[in-house]
């Protein structure tokens, strides 16, 4: 019984990091109709910047703040300098439909090479902001630690902040309106292009947090966030790609499920487990768990 509970708790902590990544993917998908595979690269670049600050100042939280700022800047930059130009040029012909997603792949490669050329390929690690020793329960310790509590708390704060922006501010209304009906939003006086850039920058910031948190008890390398991207994507698909709430629920379910596989079956089956979930969801409920029976728009 104790093992079940500790697996649930660890799963919650893992899943909450996936939630940030999948939220970042969903935010961009809603506004741009592109799954931003460069998100892993953007998060990686932000995490490297956060790592640089955190290791120099020896304050994790300062690093996190810089990672958030860098993520927001990079996200806005990607939309402003690449996506806008791309949508202006690639408008017709056989490549028009596929150009955006291919461009995000190119960006992922570009950011990865820039990071590799700057920081090299060695593994880096960030000093965790809290103890990674597990809590003691009775006469034993469980793997759930202070750091996990901190991760869940940080993610909750970020999620509440994003929810607040989307539900309670004019900016959020503009973001939702331009994602839902760009033409009508434009007629209502919303600058949809600028709003979209803001959406990308929120997604970038959220991705930066995900990168920092996942690195706080793991290593950082130019490839270390690829798996996070994949699990974020799977979580987003579980949630139906459209729904922010769905993506968070999907991520928590996926995180807990994969932790159960990790604790009860073994490390090697974690990826295959996640991949099977993706295939099963696509076969059984491709619209995701939050679908309300309306036609998909994309």
């Amino acid at each position: 019984m104790q093992k079940v509970i500790e697996t649930l708790l660890i799963g919650l902590s893992t899943g909450s990091i996936y939630a940030l990544m999948s939220l970042a993917l969903v935010l961009v998908w809603r506004s741009t109709r592109v799954v931003n595979f460069a998100q892993a690269g953007q998060a990686m670049l932000s995490t490297y910047i956060g790592f640089e600050i955190a290791s120099r100042s020896e304050i994790f939280w300062l690093g996190l703040v810089f990672a958030i700022a860098a993520g927001a800047l990079v996200g806005a930059g990607v939309d402003y300098f690449f996506m806008r130009v791309l949508f202006k040029h690639a408008t017709s012909g056989p490549a028009a439909v596929v150009a955006p997603v291919i461009a995000t792949l190119g960006l992922l490669g570009l950011i990865r090479s820039i990071v590799g050329l700057t920081w090299g390929g060695e593994f880096k690690s960030i000093e965790a902001p809290a103890s990674t020793d597990g809590f003691s329960v009775g006469d034993g310790t469980i793997p759930f630690s202070d750091l996990d509590v901190l991760i869940i708390a940080t993610v909750s704060i970020i999620l509440i902040a994003v929810a607040y922006i989307f539900q309670r501010t004019n900016l959020g209304l503009a973001l939702r309106a331009s994602a839902y009906a760009p033409e009508i939003a434009q007629l209502a006086g919303i600058r949809t292009a600028r709003t979209r850039t803001i959406g990308w920058s929120i997604a970038g910031a959220v991705g930066g947090v995900a990168g920092m948190l996942v690195t706080s008890n793991n290593f950082l390398s130019p490839y270390s966030l690829d798996l996070l991207l994949v699990f974020g994507f799977i979580a987003a698909v579980i949630g139906g790609l459209e729904s922010m709430v769905g993506s968070v629920i999907g991520a928590l379910v996926l995180g807990i499920g994969l932790t159960f596989i990790l604790n009860y079956v073994g490390t090697s089956l974690v990826f295959i487990g996640g991949f099977s979930v993706l295939i099963l969801v696509l076969l059984i409920k491709p619209d995701g768990i939050m679908a309300k029976g309306k036609a998909r728009r994309a």
Partner: peptide, 17 residues
């Protein structure tokens, strides 16, 4: 990787077809 990605981005933006 850098050469490949730069070529990919440039070609997908300027000569997508």
């Amino acid at each position: 990787g850098l050469i490949v990605s730069v070529l990919l981005i440039l070609s997908v933006i300027f000569t997508p077809n």
